[in-house]
Deep mutational scan, measured.
Amino acid sequence: MASQGTKRSYEQMETDGERQNATEIRASVGKMIDGIGRFYIQMCTELKLSDYEGRLIQNSLTIERMVLSAFDERRNKYLEEHPSAGKDPKKTGGPIYKRVDRKWMRELVLYDKEEIRRIWRQANNGDDATAGLTHMMIWHSNLNDTTYQRTRALVRTGMDPRMCSLMQGSTLPRRSGAAGAAVKGVGTMVMELIRMIKRGINDRNFWRGENGRKTRSAYERMCNILKGKFQTAAQRAMMDQVRESRNPGNAEIEDLIFLARSALILRGSVAHKSCLPACVYGPAVASGYDFEKEGYSLVGIDPFKLLQNSQVYSLIRPNENPAHKSQLVWMACNSAAFEDLRVLSFIRGTKVSPRGKLSTRGVQIASNENMDAMESSTLELRSRYWAIRTRSGGNTNQQRASAGQISVQPAFSVQRNLPFDKPTIMAAFTGNTEGRTSDMRAEIIRMMEGAKPEEMSFQGRGVFELSDERAANPIVPSFDMSNEGSYFFGDNAEEYDN
């Protein structure tokens, strides 16, 4: 993207840094990872977990959730003011799984939030270390993106479920800051804005008074975040219109849905970061690795190297396929839920299948599930090659597409044709070009129609051997075009429920 120079890199967003050079960025990201790792080690000690239990991804998720809940100030305040039966607002906890007599047992633990905050700050040299908290939120978000298709949420806001490739980060909490905003897809931002506008339509006082002023500035800020994701002048001009509207209503909703559809071809720039579970960072720190000293990046080879040398386990339900569970977590670790499966298959070195073909449910185990038949197995999170994460949407291309997802959002900077089903997408653009945004709409449609099938995206960008740390010898991959490109292809993934 041309304006790259004016933006802070995501590592800076990730670490609240002012302008830093590459070495400083690597050190501050490393410091953040160190903090998460030290916190995780301490929690495993508190909970008396064995090494194996500490490497269980379900335990990692519970521990991450506990610290996120302990620092969720708004919710904590709300819980104190609106006490609900049987919930102690000062405590947080969740299921911890232990191996007892050759069987997995679930144990519900409860801790004072104050105590968890103390352990977290102690692991982070006394700081609140917001960057580390956001990092864990993005890992949870990436896992949700890989596990669930947001059909219901899309339909509720009037969008087409086939636009799911635009929904990265749709389950990120509001408090995820600049680093969170960077990884949100165009569809996620559109959905947040539509929800806001709908509230304004239904509630006369939404934009009024002292609160209304705050609401208005939040609305304009979200519009600017979305505008910054678009790469064409016409899309940005249309966002200006939406932002400046005196009284946002149905016309703005129409414009936003139009823009979301246009992003299936004229893709937005959305950041991709490899955020790993805390149970990967903990053992690495415990083994003596100093992330701050060595430096770390979320968008280069580092996460690949770390996963190459990590042992992570997962509980497996009786009829689940461990290899499929591994694929789910591998995609989440690489922030690749909406990437082209052919690119992923090449990088991973084994075939990556669409969601609907995987015999696996989510990673988390519900409290009512029976533990008797639970097994555990090693997650295979290694890769054959590594590639640089991208934040450009890439230019655009036609490809055989599917009944489910009709476009992709690249996660890796790797040369390819970008699949999208042009006739299906263009069919949504018939007729409606009147109104105050008509010239911009016409211009956007013209650009979409001009998108050429034979153009290559990320020209000359390749993948790298894991021994090639400096990215000196790019390998331009070859793809098996007979395979499906979309992950949520004609899909039956479970729906995400809060």
Rank of each mutant, 00 (worst) to 15 (best):
M371Y: 03
T45V: 11
L418C: 15
Q42V: 06
R102D: 01
V155W: 02
E80W: 10
E107K: 07
R243A: 08
R470P: 00
K198M: 12
N247P: 10
M43T: 14
A337P: 10
T390N: 11
N309F: 01
T232G: 03
R317L: 04
G169W: 08
R75Q: 01
P161G: 14
A251I: 14
D203T: 01
R150L: 13
D290Y: 04
D302L: 10
L154N: 03
A251Y: 09
G404S: 14
G94R: 06
A131H: 14
A182L: 05
Q415A: 15
A181F: 15
T147V: 13
F464W: 00
V329I: 15
L315H: 04
A237P: 02
G5Q: 00
P283H: 12
G209W: 06
D88H: 03
M481E: 08
N224E: 09
W120S: 05
F206W: 10
T62G: 13
Q12G: 02
T134W: 04
Q364D: 00
V183W: 00
L315N: 05
L56C: 13
A337S: 12
Q459S: 12
S60E: 05
E107A: 11
D468T: 15
A153W: 07
G435D: 11
T6F: 00
T350E: 00
E192N: 13
H135D: 05
R199G: 05
A182R: 01
E14R: 03
S170F: 12
C164N: 13
N498Y: 02
P419Y: 00
E320N: 06
G268D: 00
Q459F: 03
G37K: 05
R38S: 09
N483I: 12
A129C: 10
A428D: 00
S170W: 10
P322R: 02
N395H: 15
I225N: 13
D160H: 04
E443K: 10
G132H: 09
T430C: 07
N309M: 03
H135V: 03
M137A: 03
G485S: 10
C44L: 13
E107T: 08
N211K: 02
A401S: 13
R74D: 14
G209D: 10
T130V: 15
W104Y: 11
F479T: 09
R384K: 15
W139H: 12
L298W: 08
R382E: 09
M105K: 10
L172Y: 02
R216C: 03
R213G: 05
F304C: 12
M371F: 01
R267C: 04
R267E: 08
A387I: 00
E244T: 03
P453M: 08
A451G: 15
Q231G: 14
R99P: 02
I301S: 09
M440G: 12
R117H: 10
F429G: 02
F488W: 03
V463T: 10
A22G: 03
K357S: 05
R102I: 01
E107P: 06
Y296P: 12
Y97S: 05
A332V: 04
M137V: 09
G268T: 14
P318M: 13
I265W: 00
G295Y: 11
R441N: 09
R348E: 07
K103A: 14
C333E: 04
A260C: 09
P322H: 06
K214M: 13
V280G: 01
H135W: 03
P277D: 08
F346P: 03
I388R: 06
R106E: 13
N432A: 14
K227N: 12
P322C: 13
L328S: 05
A428E: 04
T390M: 04
Q42H: 12
C164I: 13
L418I: 13
F429H: 02
P419F: 01
R208E: 05
A336T: 10
T45L: 15
A472H: 06
A218E: 04
E484D: 07
L306E: 02
M136K: 00
A373G: 06
R175N: 09
R102N: 04
Y10W: 00
K90T: 15
I425L: 08
V352S: 10
I406E: 06
V100C: 05
M371S: 11
K91T: 01
R121D: 06
T215D: 10
V109K: 12
T92P: 05
R65N: 13
A366M: 05
Q311F: 02
V100L: 15
R19W: 04
R317K: 12
Y52G: 12
N76K: 11
R199V: 13
T130M: 13
I96V: 14
V100R: 11
D127T: 14
M456R: 15
D101T: 15
G212L: 12
S467R: 12
S345R: 08
D34C: 14
I347Q: 04
K184T: 06
D203E: 12
P83V: 11
P161Q: 08
V463E: 14
T171F: 03
W120E: 06
R317G: 00
W207S: 03
G356R: 12
G158H: 12
V414W: 00
R208Q: 09
F230H: 09
A237M: 13
G362M: 06
R267A: 05
M13K: 04
V29I: 15
V312Q: 13
P318V: 12
R342A: 07
R102Y: 14
F291V: 05
R221G: 05
E380S: 02
P410C: 15
G37M: 10
S402F: 01
A70T: 14
T215P: 04
G54S: 14
T232E: 05
S9Q: 09
R204V: 08
N397C: 13
D340P: 02
A179S: 12
L226W: 11
A332W: 02
A85H: 08
L276E: 04
F346A: 13
L381G: 02
R441E: 05
E81C: 12
L266I: 15
D240K: 06
S438I: 00
S482P: 00
V463L: 11
C44A: 13
I197E: 03
S9F: 11
V414G: 02
D34E: 14
I41Y: 09
R348V: 06
R355V: 09
R118C: 08
H324Y: 04
D302W: 05
S217E: 00
K7S: 00
W120G: 08
Y111G: 02
A218T: 14
D127N: 09
E294P: 00
M137E: 08
C275P: 04
Y219V: 03
S314V: 12
K103G: 09
S310C: 15
F429W: 04
R117P: 00
G490V: 02
K273C: 01
R162K: 12
F412W: 08
I444R: 07
E495A: 00
G295F: 09
G209F: 12
R65H: 05
V190I: 12
S262C: 08
P161V: 07
L49V: 14
G30D: 01
D421A: 15
R446Q: 04
G187I: 13
R55Q: 12
H82K: 11
V109I: 13
M191P: 03
L466D: 00
M371Q: 07
P423K: 15
M159A: 06
A237I: 01
G54F: 02
Q122D: 00
M32F: 09
A387L: 00
T171I: 07
N224Q: 14
T45Q: 02
R204P: 01
R446M: 10
G282P: 01
T151A: 07
E11K: 09
A411P: 01
S3I: 10
N395Q: 07
L68F: 11
T424Q: 12
E53Q: 12
P453T: 07
F206V: 08
N473R: 15
G435T: 07
F39R: 07
R26F: 12
Q4W: 12
S383T: 15
N417W: 15
A387Y: 05
I201T: 10
G132V: 04
D16S: 08
L49I: 10
M189W: 10
S217K: 04
M440C: 11
G200T: 13
G490T: 01
N124Y: 14
N483S: 01
G404T: 12
E80K: 11
K7W: 05
P83M: 12
E73R: 04
I265M: 15
R208V: 01
S314M: 03
D240T: 13
T45D: 04
M481C: 06
L47Y: 13
E252F: 06
L56S: 12
V476I: 00
R400I: 04
N370W: 10
A472M: 02
A471V: 00
E192T: 08
A181H: 12
N250F: 07
F488N: 03
S478Y: 10
Y487S: 01
N76V: 04
I33G: 14
N59L: 04
V183F: 05
L379Q: 05
R221S: 04
G5V: 00
L133Y: 02
Q459P: 11
R400C: 09
L47C: 12
A131M: 12
Q122W: 00
M448P: 04
F458C: 01
K48N: 11
I316W: 01
N309L: 12
V280P: 03
L298Y: 01
C333H: 01
R195N: 04
R121N: 13
